[in-house]
Simulated assay, not measured.
Amino acid sequence: MTEGHDARQAANRLSRAARDLMQSTEDLEIPADSYAVLGNVLDAVRSLEVALGELLEWHRGAEPGRHFAAAHDDSTIGIMTTVTELDLAVQQADGLQQTLSRAYGGNAVVRWFDEVEQLDEN
């Protein structure tokens, strides 16, 4: 499997990118950048929703004896729990996507300054 298609490595890169984003969004030097940042976050959430759905379907199709120990009750319970929780995660990701879409739309109509304006103290 190539690096670009290896889910484990892709998830690792995603985790690092999310941490980088977290550390860089505390203070935006250019206020208008918030629009692009929100757009990219929205795109990432859309992709995450699809990835979660794919993980859900993979787990739903996991076969005892082929993908996990067939006679191991904890494995069976673990698969059932994973399917249930991933189904919920997909629903929540859809809700997050809808919420971010509204935020993105609201941000689109703001007339941002290229630089933060200094307020007069008078």
Rank of each mutant, 00 (worst) to 15 (best):
residue 93 A to Q: 02
residue 65 G to S: 01
residue 79 I to W: 03
residue 37 V to K: 01
residue 111 R to S: 11
residue 2 T to C: 05
residue 51 A to G: 08
residue 115 E to S: 06
residue 117 E to W: 09
residue 21 L to Q: 00
residue 106 G to V: 03
residue 35 Y to T: 09
residue 122 N to K: 00
residue 108 A to N: 09
residue 93 A to F: 07
residue 107 N to I: 08
residue 92 Q to Y: 10
residue 108 A to H: 10
residue 72 H to V: 08
residue 107 N to R: 00
residue 110 V to Q: 10
residue 92 Q to K: 11
residue 17 A to P: 00
residue 20 D to M: 06
residue 103 A to H: 09
residue 13 R to C: 06
residue 69 A to R: 11
residue 111 R to Q: 13
residue 64 P to C: 00
residue 12 N to K: 14
residue 73 D to A: 15
residue 30 I to L: 00
residue 32 A to K: 13
residue 62 A to L: 07
residue 65 G to M: 04
residue 74 D to S: 10
residue 58 W to Y: 01
residue 27 D to E: 07
residue 56 L to G: 03
residue 70 A to C: 08
residue 80 M to E: 15
residue 98 Q to L: 10
residue 37 V to I: 15
residue 90 V to L: 01
residue 2 T to Q: 07
residue 86 L to P: 09
residue 118 Q to F: 05
residue 7 A to L: 11
residue 15 S to G: 07
residue 99 T to N: 05
residue 74 D to F: 12
residue 2 T to N: 02
residue 52 L to V: 09
residue 85 E to Y: 07
residue 19 R to P: 09
residue 24 S to H: 11
residue 43 D to V: 12
residue 77 I to Q: 11
residue 31 P to F: 01
residue 6 D to C: 15
residue 74 D to L: 04
residue 5 H to R: 01
residue 40 N to D: 14
residue 9 Q to A: 15
residue 41 V to P: 02
residue 29 E to K: 09
residue 34 S to H: 01
residue 114 D to A: 08
residue 108 A to G: 02
residue 4 G to C: 06
residue 61 G to C: 06
residue 17 A to L: 09
residue 34 S to F: 03
residue 37 V to L: 12
residue 23 Q to T: 08
residue 110 V to I: 15
residue 15 S to Y: 14
residue 75 S to H: 08
residue 73 D to I: 07
residue 94 D to W: 06
residue 82 T to L: 14
residue 65 G to Q: 04
residue 74 D to R: 13
residue 80 M to G: 00
residue 22 M to P: 02
residue 82 T to V: 12
residue 64 P to G: 03
residue 71 A to S: 15
residue 26 E to M: 10
residue 10 A to V: 15
residue 81 T to M: 03
residue 13 R to W: 14
residue 63 E to M: 01
residue 41 V to A: 07
residue 29 E to T: 07
residue 37 V to M: 12
residue 52 L to S: 03
residue 34 S to Q: 04
residue 115 E to I: 10
residue 10 A to M: 13
residue 7 A to K: 00
residue 42 L to H: 13
residue 26 E to I: 09
residue 8 R to S: 12
residue 112 W to Q: 05
residue 44 A to V: 13
residue 112 W to I: 04
residue 90 V to I: 10
residue 16 R to H: 11
residue 94 D to N: 05
residue 92 Q to S: 08
residue 28 L to T: 02
residue 58 W to M: 05
residue 53 G to C: 03
residue 64 P to T: 02
residue 44 A to R: 00
residue 18 A to G: 05
residue 109 V to S: 02
residue 86 L to K: 03
residue 98 Q to R: 13
residue 48 L to T: 04
residue 91 Q to K: 09
residue 120 D to P: 13
residue 68 F to S: 09
residue 32 A to Y: 06
residue 105 G to C: 00
residue 81 T to S: 05
residue 114 D to L: 14
residue 13 R to E: 15
residue 114 D to C: 04
residue 119 L to E: 14
residue 8 R to F: 11
residue 63 E to R: 06
residue 86 L to N: 12
residue 22 M to G: 13
residue 11 A to G: 04
residue 33 D to P: 03
residue 91 Q to W: 01
residue 99 T to Q: 03
residue 72 H to R: 06
residue 9 Q to C: 02
residue 52 L to G: 10
residue 34 S to V: 14
residue 74 D to N: 04
residue 17 A to Q: 11
residue 44 A to N: 06
residue 37 V to Y: 09
residue 112 W to L: 00
